[in-house]
């Protein structure tokens, strides 16, 4: 409150971080902006290209535009599918966890384990696990008489990628929801018992409203991460079969490093970035506004 004694020396402590951010984020970002506005004839010979790359990427009738919108559609579908499964599943599992006692610790550790595994290791595990011939999962599913092959069948490939993400990241939703549930005072549950409320009424009228703040965070985090998906399809399906699992990030790498089409790739990545930020903002605004609207 009011005026505190001010000492500017504290800024010195922030300098290393600022320098790090400058080199790791700001400079590369500016390079990308640079590429997106120029064209090159090779040999480091750049000239001004205006917004031509951006117009190409945003025009579905061009080759690159078509690729961009296809990939964007896949990204959105994937994020939607992942959130639709992970959030309800996460809450459901959090509700089933013990509220106290010795079992809490082991349960939480077990649940958190998948999150500790690096992305490409997860990919590699599943690459083998899902193989239709020797993989435990793939072979078992086929053994049940369900045709499954994640390298040849687009549906199988999609299901595999979604399952990987659910397995890897539902624990985050579980842990956040569990923390939110634990923060509800016992009195609320006792009052509900006295009011003879059903389990469902307790969930709808007590637990869900109290979880709202935590869920905003969970949805935001999970949306950002799923929208940026790269490693799993890169390792497991390589973006295939065909281009069935070629998400924006995978396509970007292909365009930038495979075809060395730096202008298009730069424009696309900037648009990709803007879309992510905008969608996050929309999510956040809707979820917090909803809350305020209800009060009025």
């Amino acid at each position: 409150m009011i005026e505190k004694p001010i000492n500017n020396r504290a800024w010195l402590l922030v300098l290393p971080v600022l320098a790090f951010v400058l080199f790791s984020a700001l400079l590369p970002m500016m390079t990308v902006v640079n590429y997106s506005l120029q064209d090159s004839m090779g040999a480091n010979n750049f000239f001004w290209n205006g917004d031509a790359w951006f117009r190409d990427v945003l025009n579905p009738s061009t080759d690159i535009g078509a690729r961009f919108f296809d990939a964007l559609g896949r990204n959105l579908s994937f994020s939607f599918a992942a959130l639709l499964i992970e959030v309800p599943l996460g809450i459901a599992i959090a509700l089933c966890l013990p509220r106290g006692g010795w079992a809490v610790g082991p349960c939480l550790v077990l649940i958190a384990l998948p999150m500790l595994i690096p992305w490409n290791v997860v990919g590699t595990i599943w690459q083998i696990f899902a193989r239709a011939d020797i993989g435990l999962f793939g072979a078992a599913v086929n053994g049940l008489g369900i045709p499954y092959n994640d390298t040849q069948n687009p549906v199988s490939a999609w299901i595999t990628i979604v399952i990987i993400d659910v397995w890897h990241w539902t624990p985050l939703v579980i842990l956040l929801s569990y923390a939110g549930l634990r923060a509800i005072p016992d009195a609320f549950y006792q009052a509900a018992r006295i009011d003879a409320a059903s389990r469902w009424a307790v969930f709808v009228n007590i637990e869900l409203p109290k979880l709202q703040k935590v869920l905003v965070i969970a949805v935001l985090l999970r949306f950002m991460q799923t929208f940026m998906i790269y490693t799993e399809p890169f390792v497991v399906t390589g973006g295939g079969p065909g281009s069935a699992t070629t998400f924006l990030s995978i396509d970007l790498v292909k365009i930038a490093l495979g075809q060395v089409d730096l202008g298009n790739a730069a424009a696309m990545s900037l648009i990709y970035n803007l879309i992510t930020i905008t969608l996050c903002w929309i999510f956040y605004t809707i979820m917090t506004q909803l809350d305020r609207r209800r009060d009025a």
Binding site: P185, A187, Q190, A191, I194, V204, N205, P209, K210, R294
Partner: peptide, 14 residues
């Protein structure tokens, strides 16, 4: 029985 607790318990959604 009915009980009133130390901290008010109301159903926020209602």
């Amino acid at each position: 029985i009915a009980q009133v607790f130390q901290f008010p318990v109301v159903y926020d959604t209602m």
